[in-house]
């Protein structure tokens, strides 16, 4: 079976790899690029553990072929922290918003996408935005609080910078 040459930008780095046409972006990230922070929880778009952004849009990387990523800009959990942790990452630790931590990368990527669109979401908006990110450990309570706290801090920083 002939493979497809894929060139993309992942977390700002140029990457290229050969993908089986059936391989998903999730498979490619994990198995070709060793970016195992993106998780597979279901493979059917129902759990959100594989959340990444592609050209700025939040998607499930299990629902996209690796070949479709050709020429695209992909951001994963591994690209979230720069020199310092992203406020969401820090607040998740401080609020104990993770227990097993397996859903955490997907939830952080999804929450970051939310705050970029809506810097001041209500609890309900957070819950509906994250409805596709299953967490079995926390009951979501501390996750919602951590997102709110990070959003508040980011708004503060934004005002401080303006």
């Amino acid at each position: 079976m002939s493979k497809i040459h894929v060139t993309a930008t992942v977390n700002g780095d140029p990457v290229e790899f050969l993908a089986d046409p059936r391989e998903t972006l999730l498979d490619a990230l994990r198995n070709h690029l060793d970016l195992t922070g993106t998780k597979e929880g279901c493979g059917t778009g129902d759990c959100g553990a594989c959340s990444v952004t592609v050209d700025g849009t939040l998607v499930c990387s299990c629902l996209m072929l690796a070949a479709e990523a050709n020429g695209k800009r992909v951001e994963t959990i591994e690209g979230m922290a720069k020199e310092e942790l992203h406020p969401l990452q820090r607040k998740f630790i401080e609020h104990a918003a993770l227990q097993c931590g397996f859903c955490t990368p997907g939830i952080l990527v999804a929450a970051k996408a939310l705050l970029e669109r809506n810097p001041d979401p209500t609890d309900t908006e957070i819950r509906y935005w994250l409805a596709g990110n299953l967490c079995r450990c926390t009951g979501y309570d501390k996750i919602v609080r951590a997102v709110q706290d990070a959003a508040a801090e980011m708004r503060q920083d934004h005002r401080g910078a303006a």
């Binding site: 849009t57 499930c60 629902l63 996209m64 996408a113 596709g132 990110n133």
Partner: peptide, 9 residues
Amino acid sequence: VGSTQVQGR
């Protein structure tokens, strides 16, 4: 239809 992520596609 589906989640926020699914809406992206």
